[in-house]
Design a protein around this nucleic acid. Structure first.
Lengths: 184, 184
DNA sequence: TCTGAAGACTTCAACAGTAAAGTTCGAAGC
DNA sequence: GCTTCGAACTTTACTGTTGAAGTCTTCAGA
């Protein structure tokens, strides 16, 4: 039996995918396509890995994002929902909902700014801070493993090239906003 | 007025972010962090860019994903929902809904496999194929612009390094599945 | 051929995000 | 000192994804 092309195929390998692009759409530089496809696949895999780690701590990647933003903001470790939304690329409405949950879980606090009662201030709790720290520890181990095949010099070159690409898109797209969706 | 740290800050630059990590969590190799942070930011920006382009065609990135998978699958240009779900990293339930919409919009067809009536076959329509093609044309222009600052040799090195990283994660995480979330 | 088990998809209820319409407060002009 | 405008957040209704339960078909064994 069975020259059936196979119903059970899984995700094609990167090289198969590049070859398929050449077959179906010749106007595509395979070198460019390789960079772009590897970038999105890598990102997807990394998010899966982070998700497993944060799940062990009983939080989601989305919640970890909020904690990261608060810690990275520096000393008073407080930000308004609007600012948080900008940093995470979410709508303000989504931020409101996210904060609701995180307050209920004891990861952050929400209070009104007494100097300007239109504003709200979100702060990180002890528990939020400690979850952030554990997540960072796990993430740094994972990231070190991820890059283990690259020499120090290669890491530098890679970071530099990626930064150059990033500058390109950020110049073309200065507004941080924008809906997302996962792409392949 | 105003030594207030500022409510209106936007997303910090990559370098500011790296510096903040050094301040808050010294056990982090800044070189590693630069690579990782640049990767996720780049991905986010790229998805925003793709989203704008697909929106011009009246489809979403999610729908474009499905069209890509069908075209890349090759000749009969047909796949089952389960297989599609695996390739896109979605649950089967999400795939069912997505196909519902796309059938309603005339981008794909859904029929039962006559040889095995448990299975369903999703195929691409003329219109789906043509939207795919237009999206690819726009994407290839964007991607070429994105990489314009890199020489041919650099592009090769970048693709090769990213592939090496990808191999690392894929070995550690052979199952394609996994929920996602956008990370910073 | 009947029965049980497994596979492939769908349905359903709950959750997360978005857009657009509210609230509420602060600041500027009259 | 009112009134109007605008900013910051929230609410509401809707869209899309998930996990779990359900349906239908096939296949293997009795």
């Amino acid at each position: 039996m069975a020259d059936t092309p196979g119903p059970g195929a899984s995700e094609p390998s990167l090289d198969e995918q590049i070859a398929a692009y050449q077959r179906e759409f010749q106007d595509l530089d395979p070198q460019v396509e390789k960079v772009v496809s590897a970038l999105s696949r890598l990102n997807r895999r990394m998010n899966v890995a982070y998700g497993r780690q944060t799940a062990e701590l009983g939080i989601s990647n989305a919640e970890w994002e909020v904690l990261k933003a608060l810690v990275l903001a520096g000393d008073p470790y407080r930000l308004g929902p609007g600012d948080l939304a900008k940093r995470l690329g979410l709508t303000p409405a989504a931020m409101t909902h996210r904060i609701d949950r995180m307050v209920a879980e004891g990861l952050v606090t929400r209070e009104r700014d007494e100097n300007n009662r239109v504003r709200v201030i979100v702060g990180i709790t002890e528990e939020g801070r400690s979850k952030w720290l554990e997540a960072m520890r796990m993430a740094s181990v994972f990231e070190e493993e991820l890059l283990q095949d690259l020499s120090g010099e290669e890491r530098g070159r890679l970071g530099e090239m990626l930064t150059r690409l990033l500058r390109r898109v950020e110049d073309a797209q200065p507004d941080a906003g924008g809906r997302l969706s996962d792409l392949d």
